[in-house]
Computed example of a mutant assay.
Amino acid sequence: MISYATTPTDVSRLRFAFAPLGEAVASLRMMRSDVRRRAHLPWLRQVGPKVRHADLRPLRALVPPTGYVPDFLTPGDSLGYGDLDTDLEAVRETPPERLVAEVTWMMSDPGVPPGWHRATGPVHRWMVEHPERALQVVADQLATYCGLALRPYWKRMHASMRADVHHRMRVMEKSGADAVLSSLSRHIVWRNEHLTVRSNYDFEARLDGRGMVLVPSIFCGPEVLTMLPPDQSMVVYPQPDASRLWAASEGADANPLAALIGSVRAEILETLHQPRSTSDLAAEIGVTPGAVSQHLTVLRRAGLVNNRRAGRRVLYTRTPSGESLVHGARYGGDAVLV
């Protein structure tokens, strides 16, 4: 288990951020798991052929299927900017001695499969012997991979993660930090000022007023990833229902709901698995608030969504009929409207 011992100051300094390169690393790991791949098949169908033709061998050698991934690949200094170029520049500026230390640790990590150690050993030894060159190669390959696999989808991904953060911040405003920390993942327990993450590693970090960063992730699920001192303490949690992000990406032919009611209205219904405002939907789907409002009016008149006021905000949710329609389109069979 990994345990973070907090103080009231740490809780008061709790904040959310985004980690673009963390998503790149998590997606590379996800590709190696047949179970985890299932949630991202529409994305993989588009990205897979492009990635297969790119030489990413040194980069892939740093992302084992399980175990430690060198921390320099997920720089913490740029957290909050949500910008791939900022993260890539931080990787290029990694001190060579840090690469040597972290790759050396990975080479002896018992959490990494033995077969992986044997297959990647020559690449790791080359990195340790030539760290400056290795940093340049890895940063270039990260940039290539991000260009193929993340940049075309980052606006949508960032909007989805931002909506998740906005939802949790509203929970925090209403019910406090305890409610947020207790609901991040089934692999996380918040009790007696300790945040404990299920892990094959044993470590207790004392934050001592330095605070903690919570980072939503599309690709990490069901894992919870951590970063420990002396780096910024960070917990990367899986965004709920992240697979819904790709629901509309295969087009109307692959999405019966889009063929029935139109791609934007289908995407709105898919997104309303939890309450959203018009501005939330606009940010997450990538259309104007005015257009979202018009589509919501049609969906409400059709009995597929409801709205309610929450303070100054108007939140929309699916009705039972909307739930039935989405479920029937996603899983097949008869969707009975009630």
Rank of each mutant, 00 (worst) to 15 (best):
H167P: 02
A163G: 09
H187W: 08
R186I: 03
D202T: 13
L181R: 00
V189E: 13
G211H: 02
L195N: 00
G176T: 07
M172E: 15
S175A: 14
A205R: 05
G209L: 09
D208E: 11
R191Y: 12
L207V: 04
A163P: 00
W190N: 08
V189K: 11
R186Y: 12
L207H: 02
L214W: 03
A179C: 12
H194M: 14
M212G: 05
R168W: 14
Y201S: 09
S182M: 04
L195F: 02
R210N: 09
R162D: 05
H167G: 04
M212S: 03
D202G: 08
F203D: 03
N192F: 05
M212E: 07
D202P: 01
R206S: 11
P216I: 04
L214D: 00
I188R: 04
K174N: 11
E193W: 15
D178Q: 11
M169T: 12
G176K: 08
I188F: 10
E173G: 11
V180D: 07
S183P: 07
S185E: 13
D164S: 03
D202W: 13
V197C: 01
H167N: 07
H167R: 12
H194I: 10
R198G: 09
A177K: 03
E204M: 10
A177T: 11
S199I: 04
E193L: 13
L184Y: 06
D178R: 12
H187S: 15
R210D: 05
R206P: 01
V213Q: 00
D208H: 11
L181W: 05
H187Y: 10
N200W: 10
W190F: 15
V213P: 01
H166Q: 05
L184A: 06
R206C: 02
M161C: 01
R162C: 02
S183D: 15
V165I: 15
R210F: 06
D178E: 12
R191W: 08
G211E: 03
E204Y: 04
R206T: 03
M172H: 13
F203A: 05
V215S: 04
R210V: 14
P216V: 06
R170L: 15
A205C: 07
P216A: 09
F203L: 03
M212P: 03
M161H: 00
A177R: 03
F203R: 06
N192P: 00
V165G: 03
R210W: 06
G176C: 10
R198D: 14
H167Y: 15
R206A: 07
D208N: 12
R162N: 05
R162Y: 06
S182Q: 11
A205I: 04
M172I: 12
A177S: 12
R186D: 15
S217I: 01
M212F: 05
L184H: 04
D208F: 02
V165R: 02
L184N: 06
H194G: 01
D164P: 01
H166E: 08
Y201E: 13
V189N: 10
S183C: 07
D164V: 00
D164F: 10
H194A: 10
M169R: 14
G176H: 08
R198S: 15
M212V: 15
S183W: 03
E204S: 13
S182K: 14
S182H: 05
L184F: 12
L207S: 05
S217E: 11
E193S: 13
S217N: 06
H187E: 13
D164I: 00
M212T: 11
V197F: 02
D178N: 14
L214T: 02
S183A: 15
D202C: 09
E173V: 10
M169H: 13
H194D: 06
D178F: 10
S185R: 08
L184K: 05
